[in-house]
Computed example of a mutant assay.
Amino acid sequence: MSGSRRVRRTPDASAAVASSPWIIVSVGVVVMVVLLVIAIGAYRGRAPVGLVLPEPVATVALPTPTPSVRRAAAEPPAPLAARSTPSATSSPSPSRSAGRGPSPSAGGSASVAPPESALVAPQPVTGTYRVVEDFSRSFIGEVLLRNVSGADQDWTVRVTVPEARLVTSWIEGAAQGGVSRSGDTWTFTSGARLAPGDSVALVFQYDRTRAGRPTSCTVGGADCAGLG
Rank of each mutant, 00 (worst) to 15 (best):
P162Q: 08
R130W: 01
G178F: 14
D134A: 14
T185G: 05
S149K: 06
V143Y: 02
T160V: 06
Y129I: 04
S138R: 15
F188E: 02
G141F: 05
W186E: 11
V131K: 14
T185M: 13
E142V: 12
G177C: 04
G183H: 09
N147C: 04
I140T: 10
L166E: 08
D154I: 01
A174Q: 08
R130C: 00
T187G: 02
V179N: 11
L166H: 08
R165L: 13
D134F: 03
L144Y: 01
E172F: 07
T128R: 10
N147K: 06
V161Q: 08
S182M: 14
Q153T: 05
I171L: 10
T187D: 03
L166I: 12
R165C: 00
T156W: 02
G173V: 02
S169E: 15
R137F: 14
N147V: 06
S182Q: 12
T128I: 06
R137D: 15
V161A: 11
R137Q: 13
T160S: 07
I140M: 10
I140E: 13
G141R: 04
I171Q: 06
G127D: 03
R165A: 14
A174T: 14
Y129T: 05
G150E: 15
G178H: 11
T128G: 07
I171E: 09
G150Y: 04
D134Q: 15
G177D: 03
W170C: 00
V157P: 03
V159D: 14
T189A: 13
F139Y: 12
S136L: 14
G178I: 00
V157L: 10
V159H: 01
V157Q: 02
A164K: 12
Y129S: 05
V179H: 07
G127C: 03
